[in-house]
Design a protein around this nucleic acid. Structure first.
Lengths: 293, 293
DNA sequence: GATGACGATATGTTTTTCTTATGAAAGCAT
DNA sequence: ATGCTTTCATAAGAAAAACATATCGTCATC
């Protein structure tokens, strides 16, 4: 059975030495175990190249199933934790970058208060990455924009929030633009991969034809500061307004209906035994978000 | 990891001694492993009664997941077999009783011819039992009447066959009854649990209100012999006609439209890696059935 | 043709797992 | 109650598995 753990590591790293290190065993030990596994099965899983190894077609299919099995085994631990009642122990929580700085401090506090034995391990990454980490068992739950529509993930809505227009302070008295006029302005967006970028694009109906003089920033802070410098305008989520606009020469304005907004939610693996505990956690997060936002 | 195998056996047998025997280890070994498992998890799984043991609520949930995991592990072996190409090795095939005696001899022959390395292990049981054995991994595939509509099972249609009326020889020249008149006759049926019984009942629109003078037999052979003795009439599937009516003083007749029929198919676990091989097997079975029936 | 990276093999040691023997608790019958 | 039986837990030594260190073989690269 250790065979499976080791094989999984090897399939991930494609390198005996590194895989062995991850497994905390020596390279020869891993070599022997893999040989044994192949002997037991009666078929080769690994293509030993001189310079690097790869998996046989069977090995690839095998690795896929092994991953699912090991995930099931890992979840057994969560099952036991769930039986202890209140949420406790390590919980790896992913948060998208356009939510993390505004929400995390609050929920860290509230969750620690509500679940004293909880050891929260937050991680910030874009949705795509979070979903991947979730499905492969490197995360227990994640705060993302809904829907993610990933098979195997349960979505739990937390709250909706509007997108707010941020423009240079001097424009404060100008009329609020509608999506069409917004499209003509120099719109600052997050770089690719951020779901918030895609939502902003979709609101402005820019489609794939992005204007040439669009600029990209790697964080909302960057965007707002650039707006303050008069470079263009941008959209930020309601939740970010308080923090981001305090330190910049900008003015904010609600957009006319149909007001753009996004839905933030908590997601987790459907099979996670901690599901009911995660729902409790979601309720706490919802209250946190409401009270401050 | 052996922990899981042992725990599974224990959860099935509810008895250390017997479970240990199944696992081919001594009772103390099992005791120690279970203790270890509980220590690792940090929670009790087993309720040690003086006279008998039972599982804690956590233990029950745990056993459920463990079963799924072990099934996944077992399927790894099938995955390797599938990679060898043609169907080979042990294959546990379930067949319902109203099909087995007529179809099995033929398909055993044809399959052995077509897949020389196949070690076919047929088993006869009612649908309910076959489905249970399938989902729990004690069978690889089963021939049953469709649909079974069980989540997790793939259904593959083989052929349809009509139900044929069997009545005493002296009735041969009487008009063929329709479902309504059939309902008034003494209808011999299989005992409860056989899907063929339910299909016959449904055809005659008997509902749950079974006539009092209905008789039950445990096999089609019994039913036909009883018909031969003038006790009543019965329905049998087309495929059984040749064999069953040769040795009885009965006459057979096709029923008027809407002709009753059933659909026979092969089913297997959706996750079974041998799926494509099983499809090949299904095609062979289909030909077998056609050539003789 | 020397070098370096990488995996396989060899051998002895440590760790784990197992068996046999024995003990303790609880139902059951006399 | 007292002895008997069933059933699981514990103890100690034996067998098996897994491991680390040292070493070798192979192949790409320079």
């Amino acid at each position: 059975m250790k065979h499976l753990r080791y094989f999984e590591a090897l399939s991930q790293h494609g390198h005996f030495g590194r895989a062995a290190e991850v497994c905390a065993i020596s390279q020869p030990a891993l070599s022997i175990q893999m040989k044994e596994l192949e002997d037991i099965l009666g078929a080769p899983l690994i293509e030993r190249g001189a310079r690097q190894i790869s998996l046989t077609p069977l090995g690839v299919a095998f690795a896929l199933r092994v991953r699912a099995i090991l995930q099931g085994v890992d979840e057994l631990g969560d099952l036991v934790r769930a039986s202890f009642g209140p949420l406790a122990g390590r919980l790896r929580l992913g948060v998208i970058p356009t939510v993390a700085p505004y929400l995390l401090p609050r929920i860290m506090q509230d969750l620690t208060l509500r679940f004293p034995d909880l050891d929260l391990r937050p991680r910030e990454a874009i949705t795509q990455r979070l979903v991947e980490d979730l499905t492969e068992g490197r995360l227990d739950a994640a705060v993302v924009a809904l829907p993610v529509s990933e098979a195997g993930l349960t979505e739990y809505p937390l709250f909706d929030e509007e997108f707010i227009l941020v423009r240079p302070k001097k424009d404060a008295d100008k009329p609020v633009p509608n999506p069409e006029t917004l499209r003509e302005m120099r719109l600052l967006l997050l770089e690719e991969g951020h779901c918030f970028r895609d939502q902003a694009i979709s609101f402005c109906k820019l489609g794939s034809a992005l204007p040439r003089d669009l600029m990209e920033g790697s964080s909302l802070t960057t965007l707002v500061q650039m707006v303050g410098a008069g470079i263009g305008v941008t959209l930020i989520p309601q939740m970010a307004v308080g923090i981001e606009t305090r330190s910049a020469e900008v003015s904010v304005a609600r957009l006319p209906a149909p007001r753009p907004s996004r839905s933030i939610g908590l997601v987790w693996r459907r099979t996670n035994p901690l599901a009911s505990q995660l729902q409790q956690m979601a309720e706490v997060i919802r209250l946190s978000a409401r009270s401050g936002g």
